[in-house]
Design a protein around this nucleic acid. Structure first.
Lengths: 197, 197, 197, 197
DNA sequence: AATGAATGAGGTTTCATTCAT
DNA sequence: AATGAATGAAACCTCATTCAT
């Protein structure tokens, strides 16, 4: 299993900083979160942030990168234990995706919550690239699926991920668990997918 | 068919203003859109906006209200031509919803794009109320549906709407039409729903 | 008894307008009161005000002028019934002054409340002139008074008027009446003034 | 001698800032003074002010607090050297009051000049509370005084302070000194107060 | 005489960012 | 690595005033 990106060697101070940035971006969105919010959460002043990251944008890219990396690895780990293709593989991927999205911390949530078009121009393309690379996993899985006639593979993928990503807006620990939600979606999709013979 | 709200009698100048506000909010989001953007699109100065709407918030509420009103009426019109219950009714509603979302102009898109939690505290509750009132249409339809065992009605509704609303992020006129997308989703859901006898 | 100024021939619409301007200036001060406040109190729009008075400044001058005129006449009327000089004359003037200030409506109160230096440069001199002309009444009365040695006439007059004008800040109908307050002050001053032989 | 409030430990930069704020508020009043005026007096931009005080209101409260503190201490110091009760004590307090008001700098003048009702709603109560606490000194002194029959203690206090505070509007270094003015007032009051036997 | 829309100047405030220390 | 003060641009909003109608 190969890493998609590499944010590995950041010392622990930087990591704590990034954690808080992720928390702020997740809670407030990129625009509404201020550098001071992040600094405040760390007991620092805003100036201090800039010793580690050169701009608010850079923070977002770092969070985003890490979020993609994390969820990617989580999904890959699940896939390693799953069939090489077919509905079970999709199920494994979707379940892992939604599990990590809802319970995996702030990083992955930022990836879903912050749409590239609310990020500054300068980094927009980078965010899209990161996210597309991740979603390629699903593109690949869907490609190996036998779908009912009339179902466009791309639209299928986008709708399914759209459905799961929307859970972020209403998921609560008091309701169904993430994997129950994935199960529910999969149950709904039953007829969309012909069983492999 | 009864109106959900009433933004009917705004004179045409105000309406043009609201149109531009809707366009800006849709294109940029609430936070990134500035009052100057709206004013500029009308060839006005920012102060001029405030002769009509007392705050940027008020503008958002007006746009949101109108958006909900519009899409609600579109869906109601479709429902008036549909079966009183069952899968066809859901299909009609979903198709109308996605059609209007993708082709109905900026107002409805703002309703989907602007999450209440990026709106100022003061109006958040109002936006949620408006949206909930609209979504109640779907709650009612889903209630009269026979779902496969194990599928939670609430989760079903939220996932289906989540899937359709996510189309806003990737829909393009060059791909499938809105109703084809709805059809695609419905095809995917085939087995989730037991036919009414 | 001769009029100090002449704001006599204003038609009744203008007068109602001025009444509200006086009310606003008294309640909020000149700066805080907006032209819209005045218009609103009349059920008009701001533009309408300008059909009668060319500027906010002009409104202030008109109110001020009328306020001075009113209190001047009230005091003159009291003086007409009083001794030609001596403590009783002062008492009559002070009593009339404080009575009118506290019960004579908004105009006079504006004269006391609005210090010329919060008015725009352009009218400051005019306001000072109006007020000085009024206060000349007291200057004259004090001039004919026999004060205890060591009491400066000008300071005497300014302190006495200052004391009475300050009542505006704390006077309430539930406490002493205006003339009781004047009586109280006069009692306090007993020894400052030597009786005329 | 106990301090009424504590604005003691503000570093010198902040103090210079507050000095200028006090100067502006005194010269122009709260409403007319702009944050830019204050910043300009310090060679800063308006934004810079907000690193120290979160709002114009906060600036006013800080100035007011300091003003009350200063004049309070000045009066207390004078009282420490005076008789424990009686006319001399009142005289000491009044003299100290007017001396500090007229020669003690901008802070105290702001306390007298800026009426709470021209301050924003949010801080009005606080300003009144501060000022009332200070004036309690005089209430206490007046309580221990033997006043001529028919003189209400509260009205006596309010008129005396009103007279002295009004000096702010006309005092000039070229005329009587502050303590001469206080002396003059006291002379005027001679008969209001019965000598303690 | 009055409205309603608009202006334009100016107000307070926010915030990413910089920089000397 | 971090602070604290400061900047400068830009945001929302207010308000006296104007003007076509």
């Amino acid at each position: 299993m190969q890493s998609l990106t590499s944010t590995s060697h950041i010392d622990s101070r930087r990591l704590l900083l990034l954690d808080q940035a992720a928390a702020c971006f997740r809670r407030l969105g990129y625009q509404a979160a201020t550098v001071r919010d992040v600094a405040g959460a760390l007991g620092m002043t805003t100036g201090g942030i800039y010793a580690h990251y050169g701009s608010k944008e850079a923070l977002l890219v770092a969070v985003y990168t890490r979020g993609v990396e994390q969820i990617y690895e989580h999904v890959q780990a699940a896939l390693a234990r799953s069939a090489p293709k077919g509905p079970d593989r999709l199920r494994a991927a979707l379940t892992a995706h939604v599990e990590f999205l809802l319970s995996g911390g702030d990083y992955a949530q930022v990836v879903i919550r912050v749409m590239p078009d609310e990020a500054p121009e300068a980094v927009r393309a980078e965010l899209i690239r990161l996210r597309d690379r991740y979603e390629a996993v699903f593109t690949a899985i869907v490609k190996d699926l036998r779908l009912k006639r009339g179902i466009d593979r791309r639209v299928f993928r986008l709708l399914v991920l759209g459905a799961l990503n929307s859970t972020q807006r209403w998921y609560s620990k008091r309701g169904l668990t993430p994997s129950q939600i994935a199960g529910c979606l999969f149950a709904m999709l039953g007829s969309a997918i012909e069983e492999t013979s």
